[in-house]
Design a protein around this nucleic acid. Structure first.
Ligand SMILES: [Mn+2]
Ligand SMILES: [Mn+2]
Ligand SMILES: [Zn+2]
Ligand SMILES: [Zn+2]
Lengths: 143, 143
DNA sequence: TTGACAAATGCAACTAAGTTGCGTTAGTAT
DNA sequence: ATACTAACGCAACTTAGTTGCATTTGTCAA
């Protein structure tokens, strides 16, 4: 809930209109702490009788990423996931069997040091990184 | 070149037949140090007049991963890439514009420590991790 | 050297994620 | 209230990956 007003302020700043779909999508991200894909969003909004079009959702997520409200997340399947960029930077534990995802917080100092080192050495401008751990969650270990 | 014989020994050990496609695929990975996707492989083998079927390639990569010859790599697009598992574990610098990929070697001690910590804390069995840095390569910075 | 048998292949049909073009709808500022 | 344009919805399309099944081909034992 806590990021809601800040995000709507960013939308106003970028002169993005407050449409039904945009509002619904933003609120989904505010309420959920897990990364969401387009199929996830379509399913969730369909359940709430909100008729949303997939093309619209794809375009919306692109825009929200462009203005820095959302960040891309890769979870190793062939879907693009997103999360609120306003949350503290973190990484994920992903279950290879049931797709369960847990946030993990770690000290990034080492990663940033590596970024500087390789940026210099390979002449790359590094914009972001992705670090995810894959394995089996507690439930799936039993089965 | 250097992993060729070891890999064929593993194939024999697992009683996998030495077929044309299998041989061609393995040799592509041995020759290329970059991660390869199915579309990459189809294109490469098609250029060399080797008629390969996409279903066969998908199934082949699955098998080679199952016996530990290949490892999955995620580069942030919606393709599954693979690399030789026999190479030293490493990570990647990926250009968001031209898809160029550079290998980077870093000290994993910190990552392994994190794995143990979160494994205990979240009751996950961690099997592998994926760490990739995204940005712009030297060529794409100019453009 | 030759078969037999299973492993591997090829094809067609299919699914799922994501993209594009274009005509229509609807927020917003004046 | 109106006009302007951002945003939307739909249909058609692309690309990555999957599945079932009939056919081919490596391998090993006779
Ligand atoms: Mn997260
Ligand atoms: Mn590599
Ligand atoms: Zn699980
Ligand atoms: Zn580049």
């Amino acid at each position: 809930m806590k990021y809601r007003e800040e995000i709507f302020a960013v939308l106003r700043f970028h002169k993005l209109r407050l449409t039904k779909t945009r509002q619904a999508v933003v609120e989904l991200f505010v309420r959920n702490e897990t990364p969401l894909s387009v199929p996830d969003i379509l399913l969730a909004l369909h359940k709430r009788q909100a008729g949303v079009n997939k093309t619209t959702v794809y375009r919306e997520l692109e825009r929200l990423q462009a203005i820095g409200v959302l960040e891309p997340v890769q979870l190793g399947d062939r879907k693009q996931y997103y999360e609120l960029a306003s949350r503290k930077h973190h990484h994920h534990l992903v279950c290879l069997q049931c797709e369960r995802v847990e946030d993990i917080d770690m000290d990034e100092a080492v990663l940033f040091a590596e970024e500087r080192k390789w940026s210099r050495e390979k002449h790359f401008i590094i914009l972001r990184h992705s670090l995810e751990f894959f394995g089996l969650c507690r439930q799936c270990q039993a089965a």
